[in-house]
Structure formats: C-alpha cells, structure tokens
Design a binder for these strands. Structure first.
Length: 420
RNA sequence: GGAGGGGUCGCAUAGUGGCCUAGUGCGCACGCUUGGAAAGCGUGUAUACCGCAAGGUAUCGAGGGUUCGAAUCCCUCCCCCUCCGCCA
C-alpha cells in the first residue's frame, strides 16, 4: 500500500503517479476527504476514551451513582461515534487498496504494451534452413506435451509435460538454483496457499486482481500466482540488520492463475495456462540500493537466458502496462521462431522494483546505521517460468527431422543431447 | 478429526474485574564508578495512530461480547504443546 503520509503531504504527486497507471486520480481527493473526517472522529473518540478512563479510575475508589450515570452516558456516545469512525475507516481503506504503487519519474510514459521501450536485443537468431514449426506441433509429435488429455481431465488451459519435457523442467530448475545459489540467494520452496490477510498486505488483492486468483472458500485460502507471494512474507514483521542486506531468495513453486480477462488470448497449448511451475527471485534491500539490485536481478535473468543460448530482448515497461505493485518493471522477452508468421519475442520474464509498497503491508523493516527502523524495499524477478522457457527451447532448438536439440548447459542435467 | 494443556514487553516469567498507567529477572543502550574491564549502582528500553507540542488513544494470539471499567469473565477463530485417530 501507499504511504498515507505521502498522500497527505504530496497529493499532486500521488495523483500524477496513479494517473500514469490509468487509475482515476479523483480517488486521491476522495481518500483525503475521508481521511480528514476519519482523523476528526478519531481525535474525538480518543478524547472521550481519555475521559472514560479517568472516570473508571475514579470509580475504583468511589462508586457513586452520579459517576455511574455519567459513565453510562459517555459509553453510549463512544459506541455511536465508534460506529461512525469504523464506517469511515473501512471506506478509507477501500480507496487505499485501489491506489497502485507510483512509477518512478523516469519510467517511460505510455498507455499500453505498444509503448514499452525496447532497451536492447541480445543473441543471434538462428537461421533455419527450413520453416520453423511452432512448439506445440513439435511437442505433440514427440509426445512430450499433452494438452488434449489435460483438457479432458482438468479443463482448458492445462497441460501435461511428459517424458523429456518433464525432465527438462527439473533440469531448468537445477540450472537456475545452481546459478543463483552461487550468488548467495537462499533457496526456498514456499507454501502455495496464502491467507487473504497476507495476500492483501502483499498488495495482491486489489479489486481487479482478485479475479485472477483461485480461492478455497472452505479453508479461506488463496492459491498463489507466484512464489513471490509467499516468499515476500518471510520478511513479515521482521527487522533486519542493515549489514544483512541484500537478502536474496530463490524459490520454486507452482503458480495458479485463473487468466480471467484473457478469454480468446493464447488459447492453444501451454503458453498461457492455469497452472505452471516457476523459479522466482526475491530481494530485500535498503532504499538506496534498490535500483542497483534491480539491475542485478535483471542481469541474473539475462545470465540464465544466455546460458540457454536463446536470443532475447530487454524491455522497459511503460507506466500504463506496469504491474500494480511496481515502481519500475523490466521484461525479458525471448525469441520464439515458431510464433506468428516469422517468429516473435514473447514475455518469459519480468523484473520489478516494488519499493516499499509491499514491505509497508507486511511490516518488513531494517535497522539503519543510526538505529532507526525503516521499511525495506523489495524486488521480485522471474528465474525461469517453465512452460514459456520450454516453448522457447523447443522452437529455437528444433531440427528439420522434428527433434529438439538439448541446450548445451542442460545436457548433463538431462543426460542426452537431443530429444527425438 | 477427537480429548486435554497453553499463547503476556527482545527472551523468560508474575498477574482470576479497578492499587496493571502490565511487575520482576535476563538481555540491550547510556551514564556513574575504573588505568581498562567485570561486578555494582542509576537511567532508559515496543508498535501504530491523533497532536506544533505537552500529551492522549489503541494493542497482553485475532475478532466479537458482557461491564462505568477486561490481560483477567463469555463466544468464535488461529497458532503451539501432549495423547489418540488418519496419512506422504
């Protein structure tokens, strides 16, 4: 959530920021009005409570009828005003929940993904001597992806990874973990369910985000959309020593997404599915180092994609296309030669600086040099999203005979050079 | 899932309706003392909100209730421990 003090002290800045993210800036004015009323009520209530405490204390000594009736009257007033305050309080919180994190000033302005800024293209696209096929055609023929059966068993947007595709998943996970553990990321396998309370604290239950989550009403738990959602809360209520920063985690989890609002989009295959596995990075840093850490996480992503020798490009996401919790976001888009007419870059990774938007919610702090406790900054980044990186591998490494070469770096993990 | 026991300040503990404005010990910080240290002594030691400030309010696992007043009584839930059941 946003800092209430910032909204009060610098409403114009907040309005400008949320507007860049296509959120109605009038919400800010609405918040300020409610906040002001809330503050007045709170003050009145505190004063009455002080009075009540004084009378109660006195009654400990002297139980006069006079005092008692005074106290009873006071109690009624407090109950009434409390009810009013609670209404204001929840209205105020609702609006706060509708305000996204503010983009940094130098994030490219734009309304949607068409205005994202391509920062660089890396790697050489292979020159195929034949027309490259799309991954699904290849994978189904090899029998390593089965979407038809999955649809029968679980519905649309599910898939089986079989045989070497299943093995490839674990090879990719090992590659990512081995690479990142060397960089002192702490490996973690987190829960894939999360309480509404913590999910909200992580800034992931804003009204329009809710629709994309699976919810288990009987247990009042959500299924996570990313390991990020349950790794971040490792810092919940903690105060880290400045010397222990950055704190880096690399997690593996299954991710669940309802993909509501993407009807008709990428309906075939395993590019966009309800369930996939992902390796995820998460960092806690002090504010001064967040931009540096952001670049570092991005460099880790590039290292991983480069290790697979896949061509990719790095994109800075414009304000209108950014994630809810993000102040700056980069995506890595990997080349997929079998997509579209002549190949396409498709998003395989994203990398976000969420500043203190999440840490304020989960109350994750660090101790500064002069002993003060301040909110940490948090960042998250994809390691490998298995389905999508699998697609990139299959399409880039396909051979004319319908097989798939195994990227060199995965051969030892997989124990073979080629899938056929 | 069933039965019982528990959750209090960083840690450990006291606290069965008003003297709790949560005590004590340990730890920690600062000061005194010392050549230096230890011990000793003294002072301090949470978070959030409201307020320019003085100060006030809230928080004893969470939420509700009873009461003029709740750490304390009642209800619901969560978590931990012991035993039973089930299970990878």
């Amino acid at each position: 959530m946003l800092d209430v003090k910032l909204i009060r002290e610098n409403p114009e800045k907040v309005k400008a920021g949320v507007a860049k993210k296509k959120v109605d800036p009038k919400l800010v004015d609405k918040f300020l009005r409610l906040d002001e009323e809330w503050r007045v009520k709170t003050k009145a209530l505190d004063d009455l409570a002080a009075e009540q405490n004084a009378i109660s204390r006195e009654m400990g000594q002297n139980q006069s009828q006079d005092l008692l009736s005074k106290a009873q009257l006071l109690k009624q007033r407090i109950t009434d005003i409390e009810a009013e305050r609670d209404v204001l309080s929840s209205k105020r919180d609702d609006i706060l929940n509708k305000l996204p994190n503010l983009p940094f000033d130098d994030v490219p302005l734009g309304k949607d993904e068409s205005e994202n800024k391509i920062l660089r293209e890396v790697g050489k696209k292979k020159n195929f001597k034949f027309k490259p096929k799309d991954y699904l055609t290849i994978a189904e023929k090899l029998g390593i992806v089965n979407v038809k059966k999955a649809t029968e068993i679980a519905g649309s947007r599910f898939g089986y990874l079989m045989g070497d595709a299943a093995l490839l998943e674990f090879a990719l996970v090992r590659l990512a973990f081995d690479t990142l553990v060397k960089e002192r990321f702490t490996p973690v396998v987190p829960p894939v369910m999360i309480t509404p309370t913590v999910y909200r604290e992580m800034g992931r239950l804003a009204a329009d985000q809710k629709e994309d989550k699976y919810y288990l009403p009987k247990d009042e738990l959500y299924l996570v959309g990313s390991a990020e959602h349950t790794i971040g809360p490792l810092g919940r209520g903690e105060v880290f020593e400045a010397s222990s920063l950055p704190k880096r985690f690399v997690g593996f989890s299954t991710c669940f997404r309802r993909e509501a609002g993407s009807y008709g989009k990428d309906t075939k295959g395993i590019l966009r599915v309800h369930q996939f596995d992902k390796v995820e990075m998460y960092s806690f840093v002090d504010p001064e180092n967040s931009e540096r850490e952001h670049k570092f996480l991005l460099s880790m992503q590039e290292k991983l994609v480069s290790a697979l020798e896949l061509p990719y490009r790095v994109v800075e996401i414009c304000t209108g296309d950014m994630g809810w919790t993000d102040a700056r976001q980069f995506d890595v888009e990997t080349w997929m030669p079998g997509q579209g007419e002549a190949g396409e870059y498709r998003e395989t990774h994203s990398c976000s600086n969420t500043t203190d938007f999440q840490t304020r919610g989960i109350n994750a702090k660090y101790k500064t040099k002069d002993g003060k406790k301040e909110f940490l900054y948090a960042l998250n980044a994809t390691g490998f999203a298995i389905g999508r990186i699998l697609i990139a591998i299959i399409e880039n490494y396909q051979t004319e005979d319908g097989g798939v070469e195994v990227p060199k770096v995965l051969r030892d993990y997989l124990g073979k050079d080629k899938i056929e």
